[in-house]
């Protein structure tokens, strides 16, 4: 069985790719088809991915604020809170933003740059 991290990734990929909310059963079937999540590990190939495992993964993702559940309907249907591009943009904003309390979290190759400075550097490169 693949690790929970790999499964989380595979589930998110499916939710981001699909347009509609999906139940854990649907997701299990899709995972079994793609075999991304379970593939590779010998000895488990015939073994089906349990729906409970998918539910565990979904509840972990829900706790992380990445997945939301449509309540009131059974079985629950799950969907991604925001698109992959939005999450990437959020992450990149965290990186590109210049909040002082972020400075210690990660080390960037280049910090903030003023427009005049960018201009000077562009000239240095010979591209206007």
């Amino acid at each position: 069985m693949a690790s929970l991290g790999d499964l989380e990734r595979a589930v998110m990929d499916l939710l981001w790719a699909g347009r509609e909310a999906a139940t854990a059963n649907t997701l299990r079937d899709q995972l079994a088809q793609t075999s991304v999540a379970v593939g590779g590990t010998a000895g488990h190939e015939g073994k089906e991915l349990a729906v409970t495992t998918v539910l565990t993964v979904l509840s972990r993702l829900e706790k992380k604020g990445l997945v939301e559940r449509e309540r009131g309907m059974r079985p629950h249907r799950y969907q991604a809170v925001s698109s992959r591009a939005d999450h990437t943009a959020e992450l990149m904003h965290e990186v590109l933003g210049s909040a002082p309390d972020r400075e210690a979290v990660l080390a960037r190759f280049i910090g903030s740059v003023t427009s005049t400075e960018a201009e000077t550097l562009r000239k240095l490169l010979g591209r206007d």
């Binding site: 990149m92 590109l96 550097l121 562009r122 240095l124 490169l125």
Partner: peptide, 16 residues
């Protein structure tokens, strides 16, 4: 060159 390209990239400005 790497510093200059990264620091002066217009996409960077847009993203920010």
């Amino acid at each position: 060159k790497a510093i200059a390209i990264v620091a002066s990239a217009p996409e960077r400005a847009k993203a920010a």
